[in-house]
Design a protein around this nucleic acid. Structure first.
Length: 249
DNA sequence: GCCAACGTTGGC
DNA sequence: GCCAACGTTGGC
């Protein structure tokens, strides 16, 4: 399926395709705790994970985030595990790409758009995530990529309500109430890894396992390289946890 | 900063 | 609906 690809260095496209409003990063000082954090508490989540159709879904995840500053349309996308730890309740909203929001701020849909397909996949994964499930917090696009810690899902996918609010800068007229485009989950810091598990180390195991049939042989980090939220099998998850106890190879 | 990988777009 | 161009991810 992959055909030779072409890349034009110059690309000279129209500069800035839609600047749909830089949608500044929410300033943490905005609202006192409580606003949106409590918003969902009253309703017993009728939304449920019933979309899951009883399929054999993953219970473990890997979520990528960039720990080093980088501007994307004027917004710094940096969000390291230390940043997560620093949040109130050590909790943040996760929109499935690599954007995040403070749970005690205006929890609005800051939708740094990625392409729709990627988003759709990320969203599907987001919607499959269930309360209490654990995910590795992965540092990407940085000096030393790797798994920094563990987080857990503390709120299952819920629609980002601001996408329906006309006055909101994140209003998205193309999103329908019965099929919201933007979802988020909330994740909470659990712990740091006992040691940082680098991508290089994981890759070494992945390559070995490809021939030996070990647990990482199909790891999405290497086989689905561009997914920002990826499912892990229990075997993958357990194997990676076991690496903590070992000397880096 | 470069560029490979790869998903998406759009002309036909 | 194919397929080349293009934009983005993310390692290096």
């Amino acid at each position: 399926m992959p055909k030779p690809r072409k890349r034009l260095a110059g690309a000279a496209g129209p500069t800035g395709p839609d600047n749909k409003g830089p949608a500044g990063k929410r300033t943490k000082t905005k609202n006192p705790v409580g606003t949106s954090a409590t918003l969902g508490n009253s309703s017993p989540e009728k939304t449920s994970a019933s979309k899951n159709c009883g399929k054999n879904l993953s219970s473990y995840w890997l979520m990528k985030s960039e720990p080093e500053s980088r501007l994307e349309k004027g917004v710094d996308v940096k969000f390291s595990i230390e940043d997560l730890k620093a949040q109130p309740k050590q909790t943040a909203c996760w929109d499935g790409v690599r954007n995040y929001q403070f749970t005690n701020g205006l929890c609005s849909g800051q939708c740094l758009h990625t392409s729709l397909g990627v988003l759709a996949k990320a969203r599907n994964f987001l919607r499959a995530m269930q309360l209490g499930q654990e995910a590795f917090f992965y540092h990407s696009n940085c000096k030393e990529p790797g798994i920094a810690g563990l987080v857990k899902i503390v709120k299952e996918a819920y629609p980002d309500h601001t996408q329906f609010e006309k006055n909101n800068p994140h209003y998205d007229p193309s999103s329908k109430e019965d099929n919201p485009k933007w979802s988020m989950v909330d994740v909470q810091f659990v712990r740091m890894m006992k040691r940082y598990i680098t991508l290089a180390e994981l890759k070494t195991h992945y390559q070995a396992h490809k021939t030996t049939g070990g647990p990482l042989k199909n790891m999405a980090l290497f086989t689905r390289q561009r997914l920002s939220i990826q499912p892990l099998t229990r075997e993958e998850f357990d194997f990676i946890l076991s690496l903590e106890e070992k000397e880096p190879s």
